[in-house]
């Protein structure tokens, strides 16, 4: 392993440090969008005893990545990014709406819209980023977090692949943090889980980029139900 990555480092052009920093900033758990206050159904799954170990947590997060995130969030993130590159705000709005329509429970919808709104608010206040030209879409009454993320990535001059990997990271990091608190897991177990889950990122992004328009959007029924049941869970750490 060490040798191959060393060769890679030597042969590949150096990444742009500014862009890497922008990506880290956009995907940081410190980004003030309130992602940490939602568990996306995971809290109920733990409460019901469905997730009890690093293995069961990995399996839960993985199927989410492969089925739901790849075929909905990442597939649409690509289309949103494309729409921005083409300056096609109509297409952007259509895909934004499609994404919001894919949130199958009150909790999932609330999380997506609350985080989207917070990120738009932040973006408008960033001194180094001029988002004025994007006001027509920023002013929409509802913006999915994915759409706000796409605009930020585009204005931070991140390429699509970086944006998609960053989005995966944001999701994985958020879910592992929730699992660590709830199951609970040890800090080392959590770090190992992050390693394991990110192994698939490339495959997942490749898969998401091959999806036809008609096949965009996939649900996980029991997860959607868990998220609906979470609304009445007796004691909870996360919002619903």
């Amino acid at each position: 392993m060490p040798t191959s990555s060393n060769t890679q480092l030597a042969s590949k052009p150096q990444a742009d440090p500014i862009k890497l920093n922008r990506l880290l900033q956009l995907c940081s758990a410190n980004l003030p969008v309130g992602g940490f206050s939602f568990s996306q159904g995971l809290e109920y799954a733990v409460e019901m005893g469905w997730l009890t170990s690093p293995e069961t947590a990995a399996s839960w997060i993985n199927i989410n990545l492969e089925e739901s995130i790849a075929q909905t969030d990442l597939a649409i993130l690509q289309r949103l990014y494309q729409a921005l590159s083409n300056n096609n705000f109509d297409a952007f709005n259509t895909w934004n709406q499609h994404l919001i329509a894919c949130r199958e429970s009150h909790e999932l919808l609330l999380a997506d819209l609350a985080m989207g709104k917070a990120l738009v608010r932040l973006l408008r206040q960033l001194n180094s980023i001029d988002s004025q030209a994007y006001e027509p879409i920023l002013a929409s009454t509802e913006i999915s977090f994915v759409s706000a993320f796409a605009i930020c990535a585009y204005l931070f001059e991140l390429d699509l692949l970086s944006a998609q990997s960053g989005y995966c990271w944001t999701y994985i990091d958020n879910q592992v943090a929730a699992a660590t608190k709830l199951i609970p897991l040890g800090q080392t177990q959590a770090q190992n889980l992050l390693f394991e889950l990110t192994e698939n990122t490339q495959l997942i992004i490749e898969k998401s980029n091959c999806i036809a328009d008609d096949d965009v959007g996939t649900s996980l029924p029991h997860l959607a139900m868990a998220s609906a049941w979470h609304e009445t869970q007796y004691s909870r750490l996360f919002r619903s």
């Binding site: 399996s59 089925e67 499609h98 329509a101 959007g217 029991h222 997860l223 868990a226």
Partner: peptide
């Protein structure tokens, strides 16, 4: 305007039917 979209897609090469998050 699309307000709700729910696709449940069971295929031999996915785990939607078997997985606890699926069916």
């Amino acid at each position: 305007r699309l307000i709700y979209h729910d696709r449940i897609s069971i295929k031999p090469d996915n785990q939607i039917h078997q997985h606890i998050a699926g069916l």
